[in-house]
Computed example of a mutant assay.
Amino acid sequence: MHPQIETIFDEAEHRYLKPEELGVINQYVNSLPERLDAYRTLRDRELEIMQQVADQLEATLPNEPVENLERSLKNALLLLRYSAMGMLLNDEAFVQSRLLSWLTTTISIHNTQAIDTSLFRLLNQRLTQALTAKQINLLGPYIAKVQTAILQSPTLAAAGN
C-alpha cells in the first residue's frame, strides 16, 4: 500500500480523516485506473519490449560476452517489473528496498556498467514508443531512480577516474 496512505490510516485510527488526508487518498484513487492500465500494458508487452531491447543491445555491443548481455537484460527485466509494481503502489521505497539494495552490488561485481548504460538508453527509447505520455510520467520516476542509483554508484565513479 502507498506509504503515505498507510500512515494516514494509522494516524486516523480514532478519528475521522482530515480534508487534506482525504485529498491524498482521493488523488491516489483517481490515478489508479491509469496506473493499472500502465501496469497491464507493461505486463502484456514485456516480452516484445525486452526482445527489441535485446536485439538492439546485441547489435550495439557485438563484442560483449553473451553471458554479460544476458545478465544485464535479466536485471533490466527486474528493473521494469519492480518499477511497474512501485508505480502501481505509488511507492518509491518499494523499489529501493526490494531491488536497489542488491542490484547495485550485482552490477558492480559483474562489471556490467557499460552494458547497462546502453541498455537503459535503449529501454527508455522503447518504453517511450510502447507507452503513452501519461504512462511514461507515472512509470518514469521509478525507472529513473533505479538508473540513477546504478549509474552513479561509488564503484562506477571510481571506475570513471
Rank of each mutant, 00 (worst) to 15 (best):
M1D: 09
H2F: 13
P3D: 05
E6P: 02
E6V: 00
E6F: 10
I8A: 05
D10V: 11
E11T: 07
H14N: 14
K18R: 15
N26Q: 15
Y28H: 07
V29D: 06
S31C: 06
L36A: 06
D37T: 00
Y39W: 15
T41F: 07
L42I: 07
D44S: 02
R45K: 15
E46R: 14
L47V: 12
I49M: 08
I49C: 04
I49A: 01
M50H: 01
M50P: 03
Q52I: 02
V53R: 04
V53W: 02
D55A: 12
D55L: 12
D55Y: 10
A59C: 06
T60S: 12
L61R: 03
P62V: 01
N63Q: 13
N63M: 12
N63L: 11
N63C: 07
E67H: 14
R71M: 13
S72T: 02
N75S: 11
N75C: 09
A76H: 01
A76T: 02
L77E: 12
L79G: 00
L79N: 08
L79F: 12
L79C: 12
Y82W: 12
Y82K: 07
S83D: 04
S83Q: 04
M87T: 01
L89Y: 09
N90I: 03
E92F: 09
A93T: 12
F94K: 03
F94D: 03
V95C: 05
L99F: 11
L100W: 01
S101R: 14
W102R: 13
L103H: 02
L103I: 10
I107E: 07
I107W: 06
I109P: 03
H110Q: 09
Q113K: 13
S118R: 11
S118E: 15
L119A: 00
L122R: 00
L122N: 01
L123E: 01
Q125F: 08
R126P: 05
L127M: 04
A130L: 07
L131F: 03
L131S: 01
Q135W: 08
I136H: 05
L138S: 00
G140M: 10
P141I: 00
K145P: 01
V146Q: 05
V146T: 05
V146E: 04
I150S: 02
L151W: 06
P154L: 04
P154D: 04
T155L: 15
A158N: 14
N161L: 15
